[in-house]
Write a protein that binds this DNA or RNA. Structure first.
Lengths: 351, 351
DNA sequence: CCGTGCTGTGCAATCGATCCCACGGAGTAC
DNA sequence: GTACTCCGTGGGATCGATTGCACAGCACGG
């Protein structure tokens, strides 16, 4: 502690202290080539003694690998996104990669800037929950030889692989469950039609109804942003129908909270008067009263698979081989799972 | 698209295309020194034409600045943390710094590894919500000349500045509010005593009671983890008291959700039978039924101030000046604010 | 005894920027 | 005309690691 100032110890110094050349020291510390046990020990102890920490910037310049992966995501608030972010970070770290976090708030301008910045930092991979407004820039990234994985959303014309949630199937699962309980008037509160999940979940909802000989009723369907106020407003709307629904499918946890609040306010009891299923898990749904039936969209799996896919692409490009898209991007779809709790039950007799 | 392979354009190439030297091209693109307008235009157009993107790794090696800031955080799930993370990232980005995200899950071993890794990446700053188990390693980081900002927690012996929530004052505020409404039997559901927020919030709770001539009653106080199940269990416990409390202070939003679920289950109505105040804002509290009175611990401000503080330290160390702690670390405390909604009211007559 | 191959090590080029230093020429002062 | 100051520009060292190439020493087969 007597002067271990801010000047970091370099490999040269370690080499000198160990009485070997820089090259040998490097070989020992990165374990690439064979070195005699004696020198190995000498270098290691010198490194230890001096408190040597390799400079990844220098090493990155030479090896052309930053060990950084850009994560461009629309927000962190949504339950799926922060679960995914956590899982991703952990999995990538296990393989020596770090996450450069970029939150766009769905702003294409910020997204664009982040993409350029990630290019400048020479990230080894890009995982993106995109707005769809910058596919040209994403193309540039891909053309620069950086693997791209699209997460949750695959905009038209985007390069790279995709890891997508099984939105359509999940919504179908939820509605089939409600139909199976005997519900016929099922309301839908869903996301914006312009977003993959909004579109796909509605498609699943409609498909399940159609398969049962029913069809979506416009005044039982509300589509809008994934927000608490929208959920509340939507419930007010669908519950104002002449013939009230007996069940409600709600497409994300924020909207569901809005819905739950509004239902309490309306004095509608769940599940006695209205069955409720939410398409997204949240930590407190199992503990709610009643515990909420959900479609688990596999957020953890999404993170896991996105990490694995980007790592695979990085590995399969050992030393900046071919740049181009090797065939078309691969599409991985994560299965959804219905978790039945107590917020759904057969419809009661109309009052 | 005819061969813009993965090999990136370098400054040399831009310089050559513009017919100037590498030095001049650098000067134009980093705008450091005066250059004639003619050459400036030539270089800029060449850079544009070739699609030049500066290599931050190379530049970082030379300038000894990575433009990276390490964020070591215990988790992303907690509402405050993801708000803070989002704000931090945005603020730092505005000043050209990017966030290297590290989630520890409160595991000291992972924390330790992350700190070493951040050192290797030569981050320009460290913002940490620490476990308190690695102060020695944090000392190393600080000794390496990297500014450190402790967020929400300031373990004994940690170097650097601190940006802390006004936990004690906030809890006091909440309890004073309840006392002011006429409550005398106030229950406490709080965090682990080993964590700053757990300790401070309890202290504030106790202080407010003491100032009113009361004292905390052991069977109305539950202290445990910030989890939904604990909140539920704690409510069960305090509501089992012979003389039920008329008000409840709950120390974070996860526990509050557990509590709300349990209260519904017990058939206890809020606020008629029990007033509730939560020490932490969540997006849906304003929309709940009833809207929940909260102590806003200023998560956005915490992020904002932590970002500003680290940036200030980085700037005030223009070119690796003195390493040492310039005096003691600065302590910044963020004010808490009581937001009164409808979950609190004067106590009713005992039934 | 000599050629061959393997092992362990060192030398020096290299990655792509930044920036100190020097230099030529124009402008100004005396 | 000489000396001096700017200004714009180029040359080249430098940051700290990695890595291709060369070479010394040793073992082994013929």
């Amino acid at each position: 502690m007597i002067g271990g100032g801010p000047v970091a110890v370099t490999l040269d110094q370690v080499a000198e202290a160990a009485g070997v050349s820089k090259s040998t020291a490097s070989r020992v510390l990165s374990g690439s080539s064979r070195v005699s046990d004696r020198t190995k020990r000498a270098v290691q102890s010198a490194a230890e003694r001096l408190g040597y920490r390799p400079n990844r910037i220098a090493s990155g310049l030479r090896t052309r690998r930053s060990n950084l992966i850009g994560l461009v995501i629309t927000n962190l608030v949504n339950a799926s996104f922060h679960t995914i972010t956590g899982v991703l970070q952990q999995r990538l770290d296990e393989c020596g990669y770090q996450v450069l976090l970029c939150v766009t708030d769905s702003d294409p301008v910020r997204e664009r800037r982040y993409l350029d910045m990630l290019l400048d930092h020479r990230v080894d991979g890009l995982i993106i929950v995109g707005t769809g407004e910058n596919t040209a820039t994403v193309q540039q990234v891909s053309a620069a030889g950086i693997p791209v994985v699209n997460l949750m959303r695959t905009p038209d014309g985007t390069p790279g692989d995709s890891v997508m949630a099984g939105d359509r199937d999940g919504a179908e699962l939820a509605v089939q469950h409600l139909l199976g309980l005997g519900h016929r008037r099922i309301a839908f509160i869903g996301g914006p039609p312009g977003v993959d999940s909004g579109r796909d979940r509605y498609a699943g909802f409609a498909a399940a109804l159609t398969a049962a000989g029913l069809e979506p009723e416009p005044d039982l369907c509300a589509r809008g942003p994934y927000t608490v106020p929208f959920g509340a407003e939507a419930v007010m709307r669908v519950m104002a129908a002449d013939d009230r629904p007996t069940a409600l499918y709600s497409a994300n946890h924020e909207a569901t909270f809005g819905a739950l609040g509004a239902l309490v306010q309306l004095g509608v009891r769940v599940p006695e008067q209205l069955s409720l299923v939410c398409h997204e898990e949240a930590p407190w749904f199992p503990y709610w009263h009643p515990p909420i039936t959900v479609v688990d969209n596999g957020a953890r799996d999404l993170g896991e698979l996105a990490a694995e896919q980007i790592l695979r692409r990085i590995d399969s490009r050992p030393d900046h081989g071919e740049p181009g898209p090797e065939g078309v991007g691969r599409l991985i779809r994560v299965g959804s799972r219905l978790v039945v709790r107590s917020s759904t039950m057969p419809p009661g007799r109309p009052g």
